[in-house]
């Protein structure tokens, strides 16, 4: 019986894994994702450089807790992930994808801080719909985009450019990846950089 089905299924089904580029957010978000269409790839000018001390910040997380970058000093490497906007396709693919690598981040003594210029209720609803994410999600809504501006990743429309920074335990910026707003950065890029630091 099983053999019959297996033979007939040759090349049969494809089950998609983590999701994707512009058109494959999780089914949990079906009908809820806003299609921005292609946007200007980047629209900001970095104000931080590799080797410098990372500007400290304190932002409210979706859990209601205030989170500061400086609280990780001497304890963990920090991956700061700025994303442009909740409820959009690429962003809805990027953060859930980090779930796959949670153990790898831990092995590399790194935490992730996700930052968006959306307000807390919007980020709460969005991440809840994605069944939550394992790292703190911080709102840079007010003063609007203040942290994104400090880092030089605030776009002219008030969203943040898709940027990944790695800050080491001494608080120094060790890596900056300014990515196109239209595509999800591959996971291995940040993992390789973390392994290099370790």
């Amino acid at each position: 019986m099983k053999m019959t089905i297996r033979a007939a299924f040759l090349g049969l089904v494809f089950a998609v894994l983590v999701g994707t580029a512009a058109h494959a957010a999780s089914d949990a978000l079906k009908g809820m994702v806003y299609d921005t269409g292609p946007l200007k790839a980047t629209d900001s000018k970095l104000k931080v450089r590799v080797g410098e001390q990372a500007p400290d910040f304190t932002l409210k997380s979706v859990s209601g807790k205030m989170v500061s970058l400086s609280e990780y000093k001497g304890k963990s490497n920090v991956v700061i992930s700025f994303i442009p906007a909740a409820w959009t396709a690429v962003c809805s693919d990027q953060w859930p994808g980090y779930a796959l690598a949670q153990d790898v981040f831990r092995k590399n003594e790194a935490v992730v801080l996700g930052i968006s210029t959306d307000n807390v209720p919007s980020l709460y609803a969005w991440t809840s719909q994605m069944n939550g994410v394992w790292f703190p999600v911080l709102s840079d809504f007010w003063p609007h985009g203040d942290v994104a501006r400090k880092y030089g990743v605030l776009r002219s429309d008030g969203t943040a450019d898709r940027t990944i920074l790695i800050v080491d335990k001494k608080g120094r910026v060790r890596y900056i990846g300014l990515h196109s707003i239209n595509a999800r950065p591959p996971l291995e890029e940040v993992i390789q950089e973390l392994e290099r630091i370790r």
Binding site: F9, L12, V13, F14, A15, V16, L17
Partner: peptide, 9 residues
Amino acid sequence: MIGIGIGNS
């Protein structure tokens, strides 16, 4: 059955 990771490296 096969699986394909769309957009995945």
